[in-house]
């Protein structure tokens, strides 16, 4: 069979168990006594970028938060179902939430640097883990900042306040902060919604580089961004998962009419 173009993206059904990063089974989430996620089943592939798209309020953030149990910070929440990461159900009673969250990094919609120095921001997670060896911390800071493509810009002012950085730099710092813990999974909730197009592209490129190290899930409102950056894409609507497939198919020939309507801007 002649192949002009190399494709390393399997179709969704072909993904084996070993290639699954997050396996979500029958997940239902209620927030404030209101159902927000209905029976979600999705297998998020390992070391790939998966985009979650859908209308505002459809539950993307909630789904993302359920991967590191951030939903539990809400006062009234209820959740059923299972989320398997590396052969363990994170909703198991024995699971330690804080420990879990060190393995699953998260970057929020708005950069939220702590009002500390850049250095302190990056080592925050490590220090919480009890790492106090200065040498090791220094190494991690450099590695994380390099991975986040920020090292060159800040290496001379590591001890300045992180609040002095620009929005794009802050967002990369947030990525570095998450990467310092060397997570297996990185969750990004609209990481570029407040950034200019060029910075956005830089961060997308960064994300693309990161998939060598971890599984990435990104929520975005920007359809083009989802198309550009993702290997797989999931379309959600009103708390349901409508379609999940490799983004080549989803953006050229979606299987569901609903998806097509949404991505072509025909939504009623």
């Amino acid at each position: 069979m002649l192949k002009l173009f190399e494709r390393d993206i399997l179709s969704v059904d072909e993904i084996s168990k070993a290639q699954t990063g997050i396996d979500v089974r029958d997940l239902c989430v209620h927030l404030n006594h209101k159902p927000v996620l209905n029976n979600i089943n999705i297998r998020i592939p390992k070391n790939k970028i998966t985009a979650l798209i859908g209308q505002s309020g459809c539950g993307k953030t909630t789904l993302l938060n359920s991967f590191n149990r951030m939903n539990e910070l809400n006062k009234n929440h209820a959740c059923s179902g299972e989320v398997w990461i590396k052969d363990r159900n994170i909703y198991d009673r024995k699971e330690k939430v804080a420990k879990l969250r060190t393995q699953i990094g998260m970057v929020f919609q708005r950069p939220n640097p702590f009002p500390m120095s850049i250095y302190e921001n990056v080592v925050f997670g490590l220090k919480i883990q009890g790492e106090n060896n200065r040498r090791k911390l220094d190494d991690s800071v450099e590695r994380a900042l390099r991975n986040a493509a920020l090292w060159e810009e800040v290496k001379d002012r590591l001890f300045d306040s992180a609040l002095m950085l620009s929005g794009g730099q802050q967002q990369r710092l947030m990525i570095a902060r998450a990467l310092a813990l060397e997570p297996e999974i990185l969750l990004l909730d609209e990481p570029t919604s407040a950034l200019d197009p060029l910075t956005t592209l830089y961060i997308e490129e960064l994300i693309n580089e990161l998939k060598k190290q971890c599984t990435l899930v990104i929520v975005t409102h920007n359809m083009q961004q989802a198309a550009r950056v993702s290997d797989y894409a999931a379309f959600m609507h009103k708390g349901e998962l409508i379609e999940f497939s490799d983004s080549d198919s989803l953006f050229t020939m979606p299987a569901k009419q609903q998806t097509e309507d949404y991505i072509t801007g025909r939504y009623g």
Binding site: L2, K3, L4, F5, A227, R228, D248, T252
Partner: peptide
């Protein structure tokens, strides 16, 4: 012929994904 269809598909893919 096969190559042509692959190129066409790739073009479409790039237009769809990369704008």
């Amino acid at each position: 012929d096969l190559m042509e269809s692959q190129v066409e598909q790739e073009c479409m893919r790039i237009i769809a994904k990369r704008n």
